[in-house]
Design a protein around this nucleic acid. Structure first.
Lengths: 236, 236
DNA sequence: TCAAACACGTGATCC
DNA sequence: TGGATCACGTGTTTG
């Protein structure tokens, strides 16, 4: 506080000045900083400890350390931001605030995607079900690809898989992962499919409706074929 | 640049000064800023346009806008950082750099998990395979329960699932999750089973050997039943 | 010209 | 005390 004027004076001097071996000032100080100077022919501080120049040196060294530490801190933060820029689908020109906003959304998306995939009902239930949901909200990372998770649970029949494939093909959906479990003549198909840019939110409805019609076709079948190839001992 | 001394002088004045209706300075300016003052009794700028005070007002207004905009920018960035703090497993005291480092790691981890799930070998391959491994090293959390992930890929046959169940039952392994996929007459079963304290590392070998014998039994079957109910269009 | 975004140096604060 | 972090106001650059 008491040295702020001195600091102000030295504000724009470069570091080569500080790096010099001299322990006293080579430049004239402004009047306001001369308060500690003295005119006697002998030193009041023979050991140069606690002398004004010593105090000033220490203060300047502290200020320089402070400045450099702060620069390192900024560089550390910015390097992490740069890493995030490479991890996200965005060019390197996006500003910090927008970048962080995207990061927030992306982390939310990914967490939800994980939980929805891992908490899937692996086994067929007794009731017919169709569900289509996009775990990643609207977009899965701005690369224009939307992930959909479709699930069909119904009575098993031979041509079910073929029908599902045809539906996905007609909707131009790419299958990333398919999971099929059968239990007691019933089956559950869980599909992770990718929709391109060309797909709209309507594609979700289309897929849902197509799968539901599939389900009605299953129900019209005779239920006599039902056979229990898996029993409940298989479950925990 | 030419106004830096003026700005320097006004550096520590608070905003209430700028908010006052006065269009001229209420405080005396230092000598270095008086270069624009004049002593005549008539104004050189009758309309007060392009007058020094006008310039100063504009400069001060710009400076104030700049200051406030910068503050808003900081707040925007920090609010996003706070959101990230709530999204990550870390308390609110972690500093910015460490927080961002954690965010980088978390995003990488989540992306990795997603790709592992969606790119997992969900489909049966053309070669027979058996694998038994404990994903969590030796112990799954120190509760004495060891998790095993067993995978069997072979020609499909009706009694395969029944045989697998019998193996697990004889080894007293509890099935936590089962995943079965069929493609072109071949099948892949992925089982997540839990071993108790009573199980030793030998159980892994027992299970592996049992599943391999299962595989040999499959190979002795005739291959004529092979039917392609799924084609490669199903894959991405 | 004007607004937005950035890096910088500094004072304050907390172990 | 010193070291680390933060918010702040400022100068500069870019569109």
């Amino acid at each position: 506080m008491e040295n702020s004027e001195l600091f102000q004076f030295l504000k724009n001097t470069n570091d080569s000045f500080f790096n010099s071996a001299s322990s006293s000032f080579a430049l004239p100080a402004p009047a306001s900083t001369m308060q500690h100077s003295f005119s006697g022919s002998f030193s009041l501080y023979p050991l140069e400890l606690d002398s004004p120049s010593h105090h000033q040196d220490k203060a300047l060294a502290a200020l320089r350390n402070h400045k450099e530490a702060e620069k390192r801190r900024r560089e550390r933060i910015n390097s992490h931001l740069d890493k995030l820029r490479t991890l996200l689908p965005c060019n390197s020109k996006t500003d910090k605030a927008s970048l962080l906003a995207k990061v927030v959304e992306r982390v939310k998306q990914l967490k939800q995607q994980i939980s929805e995939i891992t908490e899937s009902e692996a086994f067929p239930s007794e009731s017919d079900e169709v569900s289509v949901l996009s775990p990643s909200g609207d977009e899965s990372g701005g690369d224009g690809r939307m992930l959909l998770k479709a699930s069909v649970c119904c009575e098993d029949r031979d041509d079910l898989t073929r029908d599902i494939i045809e539906i996905l093909r007609s909707l131009r959906l790419k299958t990333l992962k398919a999971e099929m479990a059968t239990l007691g003549g019933r089956t559950r198909n869980v599909l992770v499919v990718a929709a391109d840019k060309e797909h709209s939110a309507d594609s979700v409805q289309f897929l849902r409706n197509s799968l539901k019609s599939l389900l009605e076709r299953s129900n019209s079948h005779e239920r006599s074929k039902r056979r229990r190839t898996m029993n409940r001992k298989f479950l925990p």
